[in-house]
Design a protein around this nucleic acid. Sequence first.
DNA 1: CATGTCACG
DNA 2: ACGTACGTGACATGA
Length: 501
Amino acid sequence: MSNYGITLAGMRYDSMLESYVLNSTATRHDLDSVARKYLGEETIHYEDVAGKGVKQLRFDEVSIDQAAPYAAEDADVTLRLHGTLWPQLQSTGRLAEVYETIEQPLLPVLGRMEERGVLVDANLLGELSAEFAEKMAAVEIEAHQVAGHPFNLSSPKQLQEILFEELKLPIIRKTPKGQPSTAEDVLAELAPDYALPQLILDFRSLSKLKSTYTDKLPNQIFAKTGRIHTSYHQAVAATGRLSSSDPNLQNIPIRTQEGRRIRQAFTAPDDFVLLAADYSQIELRIMAHISGDKGLLTAFADDRDIHQATAAEVFDVALDDVTSDLRRSAKAINFGLIYGMSAFGLARQLGISRAQAQDYVNLYFARYPGVKAYMDATRAQAQEKGYVETVFGRRLYLPEINARQAPRRQYAERSAINAPMQGTAADIIKKAMIAVDTWLQEEKVDARLIMQVHDELVLEVRRDQADQVKARIIELMNGAAHLEAPLKVDVGVGNNWDEAH
DNA sequence: CATGTCACG
DNA sequence: ACGTACGTGACATGA
């Protein structure tokens, strides 16, 4: 509508979002699926009237005879769905509040972000593509020499034959289908003893960056605006997070030097800068809040380096005596806790024995008994009620929490541990986005929200207003929730997304 | 379309 | 005995 100069005054209720808040996992949330589940009706599908694939018609090419019943049914079904979904939301805990204070007001914010888009430097990406292509060609020649014959470095099947049949390297792990795995951690383990795995790792890393980012992103610049316009999906992730597609702007590289050069291609127009604001350790702060663990709360109240503080506690050394190795182990433990860790998983992550990993877990829980109590209470609540919830009352149902098959049950248990933290973080940043957008609309300041990456907001700001906007963004993000452990926001400003970090 | 892999938080 | 850290989306291969 906006593309045709039509500004909507506002809206209330959206059957897709109602279905998502009511139960994020039980169904997909497109109109066809929701009508099937809640009304027991099979709707006319878009493909029925427009066809599918390359021959699919635009809706303006569909005859009125066909279009009218389809469109009328959409309106009818939507209204009737609201009639059944809204009362259920109102009678289920705080779900109506989640809908009204988070999801519905977020919708136009996301609309404006998608419409605005982000400026990307196609020339820089082109240069990177050429550079990556050269490096890949060199690696490929060397790999073919080591293998003794040419092969497709991008084919896991061919690679697996060469590594494990021809060269007889040890099989470290198998894929779910029983094939010898050639995944990154496997190749990294083989790399010290054999030449080919490192070459494959180098090739894969370059190939990923080139095919997914430097080759593709320039093609996704929309000619009319000169910008990239992603789609944010508000009813996909079970935990309440957003997702992004076409293109996905929530997985732009950052971890390697070459990856960061891709971020440099995300820029601001003349006289503008990019401002990146991210929540520091938000999930651990939420864990401290929900568990009420004294030690964890104190660490955050004192604004300590949380991984260093954890290391000092678990390994019983003074803060100043925490080595980088101890800190790395503590960091793995902290992440593991957020993910519903098993000793096995921690052992694999740290490359230590399972018994050693179990010792670490036991030590952690002895030092942070509140966290242990929280983990137990969460599992118990999930088993009794069949769901867990975020600080703001968003629910995640876990139908397999009492499954007889252990793998399914354990998977549900890990989700039960993780979902309240990941989901609360999602709630908080959504509230922050609404607050920031409201301020930007009122204040008429020359700045706009551009991207969201789970714990980070990216804005485009007129250069001379950067300081003022930065200060206000920090206030608004910190004010999105009041937890026992204070929120913390780090902000960077720069000419591109890399510089803003 | 399934599979394996890998980019991000 | 079994498979194992949470949540996503995109790509190339190969059937």
